[in-house]
Simulated assay, not measured.
Amino acid sequence: MSRAQFLKLLAATAGGAALASCSTGPKNEATNQTTPAPAQDSFPLTIDTAFGPTTIDKAPTRVVCLGWINGDVCASLGVIPVLQAAITWGNNENNSNDWFDAAVTKLGAEQPQRYDETDGPDFTAIAAANPDVIINVIGAMDQQQFDKLSKIAPVVTYASDSGDWMTPWDRATTIIGSALGLDAKAKEVVDRVSGKMKQVGKNNPAIQGATFIPSALDPKDENPISLYAPDDVRSVFFEGIGMKRAPILKEADFSGGFYGSWSPERADELQSQFLYTWSTLENAHEVIKNDPLLGKIPAVAKDAFVADNNQRQALALGTSPLGIEWLIDETDFIDQVNAAAEKGTR
Results as ranks from 00 to 15, higher is better:
residue 82 V to L: 07
residue 82 V to D: 12
residue 82 V to Q: 12
residue 82 V to E: 07
residue 83 L to P: 02
residue 83 L to S: 06
residue 84 Q to M: 14
residue 85 A to W: 00
residue 89 W to Q: 09
residue 89 W to Y: 13
residue 92 N to E: 01
residue 93 E to K: 15
residue 93 E to S: 14
residue 94 N to H: 14
residue 94 N to D: 13
residue 96 S to M: 09
residue 97 N to Q: 10
residue 97 N to Y: 02
residue 98 D to I: 03
residue 98 D to K: 11
residue 99 W to N: 04
residue 100 F to W: 07
residue 102 A to H: 01
residue 102 A to E: 06
residue 102 A to P: 01
residue 103 A to R: 05
residue 103 A to L: 02
residue 104 V to N: 00
residue 104 V to I: 15
residue 104 V to E: 01
residue 105 T to Q: 09
residue 105 T to G: 02
residue 106 K to P: 03
residue 106 K to Q: 14
residue 108 G to T: 14
residue 108 G to K: 00
residue 109 A to Q: 03
residue 109 A to Y: 00
residue 110 E to P: 02
residue 111 Q to P: 00
residue 111 Q to I: 00
residue 112 P to M: 03
residue 113 Q to D: 14
residue 113 Q to S: 11
residue 113 Q to N: 03
residue 114 R to G: 02
residue 114 R to M: 13
residue 114 R to S: 11
residue 114 R to W: 05
residue 114 R to K: 14
residue 115 Y to Q: 04
residue 115 Y to V: 09
residue 118 T to E: 12
residue 119 D to C: 06
residue 120 G to V: 10
residue 120 G to N: 07
residue 120 G to I: 08
residue 122 D to E: 04
residue 122 D to A: 06
residue 122 D to V: 09
residue 124 T to Y: 06
residue 126 I to F: 11
residue 126 I to N: 05
residue 127 A to V: 00
residue 128 A to E: 05
residue 128 A to T: 10
residue 128 A to F: 01
residue 130 N to K: 15
residue 131 P to C: 12
residue 131 P to H: 11
residue 132 D to W: 04
residue 132 D to Q: 07
residue 133 V to P: 11
residue 133 V to A: 09
residue 134 I to A: 03
residue 134 I to Y: 01
residue 136 N to M: 11
residue 137 V to M: 04
residue 138 I to T: 14
residue 140 A to E: 06
residue 141 M to H: 10
residue 142 D to I: 06
residue 143 Q to Y: 03
residue 144 Q to N: 07
residue 145 Q to D: 14
residue 146 F to C: 03
residue 146 F to S: 03
residue 146 F to K: 02
residue 147 D to A: 13
residue 148 K to T: 04
residue 148 K to M: 06
